[in-house]
Measured scan of single mutants.
Amino acid sequence: EPREEEAEKYIKRANGDYDKAQELAKKDGNEEIAEAIKEYKKR
């Protein structure tokens, strides 16, 4: 799923820090991806 791939990219950029990844996504205006990262975190 493209959303998950995007989320993974942010998580990698944030060195595995989900909260930081979420912030990066929000900064880029990717609210949807920020949500996907939140879902990811719950797994």
Rank of each mutant, 00 (worst) to 15 (best):
P2H: 14
D28P: 00
E31Q: 09
N30P: 00
Q22S: 08
A36M: 14
I33G: 03
K20A: 10
R13C: 11
R43M: 11
E35K: 09
K38W: 10
R13N: 08
E4M: 13
R13K: 11
Y10L: 02
R43A: 13
K20S: 06
K41S: 11
K42H: 14
E39W: 07
A25S: 02
I11V: 07
E39C: 05
I11P: 01
Y18I: 05
D28A: 05
Y40R: 06
A7P: 04
K20W: 11
K27V: 09
E1H: 14
A36N: 05
E32Q: 12
A34S: 07
E39G: 06
K27N: 12
K41I: 08
E4K: 09
L24W: 08
N30K: 15
N15L: 07
N30E: 09
Y10E: 02
G29H: 06
K26A: 09
N15R: 07
Y18A: 04
Q22Y: 15
E6P: 05
E31Y: 14
K41C: 04
A25K: 01
E8F: 13
A21I: 00
A36V: 13
D28M: 03
N30F: 14
N30T: 03
K38V: 10
Y10H: 01
E4W: 15
G16C: 05
E8S: 06
G16H: 06
K20M: 13
E6H: 06
G29L: 05
K27A: 15
K12V: 09
Q22V: 15
R3D: 13
N15S: 06
R13V: 09
K27F: 12
K27Q: 14
I37Q: 00
D19W: 05
P2D: 14
A7V: 15
E1S: 14
I37N: 01
A21V: 01
E23F: 07
Y10Q: 00
R3E: 10
E1F: 15
E1C: 03
K9G: 10
K20C: 04
Y10V: 02
N15V: 03
K27R: 13
I11N: 02
E23S: 06
Q22W: 15
Q22G: 06
Y10C: 00
K42N: 15
Y10T: 02
K9I: 11
